[in-house]
Simulated assay, not measured.
Amino acid sequence: MGACICPLEGSDGPSQPPNGPLFFHPYLKGSQVIMDESHCIASRTATFCNGIVFSSRPIELYEKVTLKILKEESRWTGGLRVGFTWQDPSLLEPSVLPPYICPDLVNQGRCRAGVLPEECEAEGTIVSFWVDNQGYVYCSTNEKPEGFLVISGVLVTSPLWAVVDIYGRTKALQLLDPSSLPTNADELSLLQQSESTCGDFLALPEECAVCFGQKANTVMLPCCHANFCSHCSLEIFHTTRCCPLCRQEVKKIIPISVLAKGESPEVWLE
């Protein structure tokens, strides 16, 4: 997993104005899902699966989908899965939904989703996720300014709907209004309070040291090695979780562009 700062207004990838209120799709949902009248609270009634829900409308690029974990169930393992689909959920029947997003729905070919880390499982945790214009999905927790990379490969040339799997330990979710959370300007201000950097990023190798085909654009933390592309960094994090250069444990991955602006690595490792 890697990371990015949340997009700012006026940046290269600003969020477009949302086209109406966001809530869970009222009809297409897993067989174990029940919702409140507002369709903003979804719960899984039994088992550990069949908890897939969708957004009620398409999600814009960089638009945050923000959830709060209302209840967890300790007798199960595994946690929340999130992602995006380019198949209109209104055209599907609930009976065709598989029990899991990963790998079932992903294997159908019109969805990309990933598993969130354990820190996203606790009751009261606020989780936001979004997709950028390159098809990378990022997630942040508890209103922190940084976002870690979850998955890539989302087809951004088509309308996208958010998809969430209320899986395993995650028992109930509430869909929140992101406008009630800190603004992007507030988040940037927090990051700019730090003065230290992770080194000089102006003389970096251009090619990824793993695939030699993509540009090196990410930084491993805490070792600060910056020799890998986003795709290879994600593969490393999900497999060995060790930096190939120094074998130090990788705790987070962030874009080079963020630290090149003078942001502190300590902020990202909190």
Rank of each mutant, 00 (worst) to 15 (best):
L80V: 03
G79H: 00
I253N: 03
T183H: 03
G135W: 01
A46S: 11
L191T: 00
C211P: 08
G13R: 07
A172E: 15
E235C: 06
A162F: 10
G83W: 00
P117M: 06
V53N: 06
C198I: 10
L155Y: 09
A203S: 14
P117V: 11
S180R: 02
L8S: 04
M220D: 08
C4F: 11
K64S: 01
D132F: 14
D132V: 14
Q134R: 07
C232G: 01
S15K: 08
C6V: 08
R110A: 06
S152V: 05
A185F: 07
E37K: 03
L190I: 07
H225E: 00
L8K: 03
T157D: 07
A172G: 08
Y100W: 14
N107M: 11
Q108K: 14
V82L: 02
V53S: 05
L70F: 03
P205D: 09
P58I: 10
W76R: 11
H25A: 11
R169S: 11
D186P: 01
L67W: 05
P182R: 11
L221E: 08
T45D: 08
P18K: 05
R112S: 14
C40M: 13
S140G: 13
T77G: 06
L22D: 02
G13C: 11
V96A: 12
V156L: 02
E60S: 13
A42S: 08
H25I: 12
A203W: 13
D177K: 09
G168T: 02
H225T: 02
V106R: 11
P265H: 10
P7N: 00
A46C: 05
S264H: 02
P222S: 10
R57W: 07
P182S: 11
P265C: 13
L149F: 14
C242E: 12
P205E: 12
W130V: 02
C4L: 02
I41R: 13
V156P: 00
F212S: 06
V53L: 05
V210C: 09
S158N: 12
S180H: 10
C139K: 01
L97Q: 06
P98H: 13
K252V: 13
C139N: 13
A203M: 13
M1C: 01
E146D: 09
A185N: 04
G20C: 10
G2E: 01
P94S: 02
A162P: 05
C4I: 05
V258D: 09
P117Y: 02
E119S: 15
G2A: 01
P89C: 08
P17E: 12
Y138N: 00
V250T: 10
Q248L: 11
N142T: 09
G168M: 01
F54A: 07
D36L: 07
A3M: 07
E72Q: 07
D132Y: 14
T85Q: 03
